[in-house]
């Protein structure tokens, strides 16, 4: 997959997200902020560097490529 700096390439599937906060805390570019129920919100999509770390570290298969599955 082609990396595009400045475009957040994922969707977060609410059904699967357990609001653990890993994506929020460990995104190096601080793309996410936590909502009132600790749910992740993509508030700074343009800062995304395309490192894919949030995708790899989400334990719940909730962060998904827009095209899949």
């Amino acid at each position: 997959m082609e990396k595009k700096k400045g475009k957040f390439p994922f969707i977060i599937e609410e059904r699967l997200c357990k609001k653990c906060g890993i994506c929020v805390s460990h995104c190096p570019a601080k793309v996410f902020t936590a909502g009132p129920g600790n749910e992740p919100r993509v508030t700074n999509p343009r800062k995304c560097t395309g490192c894919n770390l949030c995708f790899f570290r989400c334990p719940d298969f909730a962060i998904q490529l827009e095209v899949s599955p």
Binding site: R15, L16, K18, K19, C20, G21, I22, F56, R57, C58, P59, D60, F61, P69
Partner: peptide
């Protein structure tokens, strides 16, 4: 995908390894 969400707790590493 039909079997998800899995039974592991929020923040549990099992899912990260399984995704790997």
């Amino acid at each position: 995908w039909d079997q998800l969400p899995h039974l592991w707790c929020p923040g549990c590493g099992n899912g990260i390894a399984l995704k790997g």
